[in-house]
Design a protein around this nucleic acid. Sequence first.
DNA 1: TAGATTGTTAATCGATTAACAATC
DNA 2: TAGATTGTTAATCGATTAACAATC
Lengths: 224, 224
Amino acid sequence: MVETHDFKTAPLPTVRRLPVYLAILRDLHERGTEQVSATYIATELGLESIQVRKDLAHTGIVGKPGVGFTIVDLIEKIEAFLGWDNTTDAFLVGAGSLGTALLGYTGFKRYGLNIAAAFDADPEKVGQSIHGKRVLPMEKLGDLTGRMHIHMAILTVPAEAAQGVADTLVAAGIRAIWNFTAVSLKVPPQVIVQNTELSSELAVLSVMLAEARRKSLHSHPPSC
Amino acid sequence: MVETHDFKTAPLPTVRRLPVYLAILRDLHERGTEQVSATYIATELGLESIQVRKDLAHTGIVGKPGVGFTIVDLIEKIEAFLGWDNTTDAFLVGAGSLGTALLGYTGFKRYGLNIAAAFDADPEKVGQSIHGKRVLPMEKLGDLTGRMHIHMAILTVPAEAAQGVADTLVAAGIRAIWNFTAVSLKVPPQVIVQNTELSSELAVLSVMLAEARRKSLHSHPPSC
DNA sequence: TAGATTGTTAATCGATTAACAATC
DNA sequence: TAGATTGTTAATCGATTAACAATC
């Protein structure tokens, strides 16, 4: 077997937790703290310290036994691991209410993401600036994707338009789609889709709330 | 040991997938289809059919071997399982750009969620209507939560305000918080928090894109 | 009947948690 | 030194996948 560096990426649950740690670390850093232990982060988030330690280990950070980790190093390692040390430019397609909200979200900077431009099919919106970003016509998308070397798109169009726009994005050479629509997109295998399913989030909340209510009913049976 | 109905809720990954199935089922239903197999749903989503079958089984649905499931029954079962057969009223706190986007999102109806009112600390916003919902002052939150029997809140305030508002919500008797801020809230154990972490979603996309790029580099080494 | 699919039981896989020596 | 924490190896837990009889 050929000796290949198999950069086995961290487990997905780990990848999802790392940005959460990062937010805490940045906060501590701003307050002037220099060292942090996995125990501290774990307590802060209601996790087990061993889980935090295992997660952090994936970034290649090395800590000091009895002390913990140097915060600036840790921030650096996590950012590098997530590829957030360099800015990624992305196009946003669909300047509706959600698209507008995302265009106005200043936090993406901290995740190494920059929305380079927005696109919309509505001629009324084209030409406008939303939160300082130009809204361009869909026709320009294909050309600009190549010229600006854009690989990522944020999809915030209405459900009916989602698949059609996704096809356009794929044809334009987009490699990663952050899909905020409720549509499960059909794309070729080399294109990555990350679905941000509000319905799944709400489902978890609904089910947990119902369960909690059931439990409290059991311990305090209704008196009325 | 006392014989208690232990409604063991489905695994969380199952809960997250059910709304995705639901969307497909509703679509099929609108097109007049009456039966569906787990195989079909699985193919549609790029999953294994056994996983879909297992997931659906948690809702209590019973299928016909060789045929599949009756779509209307399945829709009903999933909705009941998620508690989406009855509408849940929720308050939205923080009428900024994301709050405004969510106020305008018509899809929540389909998830049994109704935003009953919005709240904001900014006197400029109070009194306005956004997408037909009144924006009320924060001071009214405590009183109205009790009077309207609201149990759920959607938190879309700026990060700095998040913990303070969460405390207010808890004091008002809110039992479930859908947290769109990047802050990890500290709440008492009986209060459920569902964090919708955009940063985690983006992290997954970033890491998968980097991995895909690495793979294509290996097979097509750069020629320039 | 033949083909397809369900539902159940068992096997596998991967992530979380536990245990503990090494180290500051 | 004593207390705390890391990093590693092993054990546990839970979800996914496989296998297959039952059924339409």
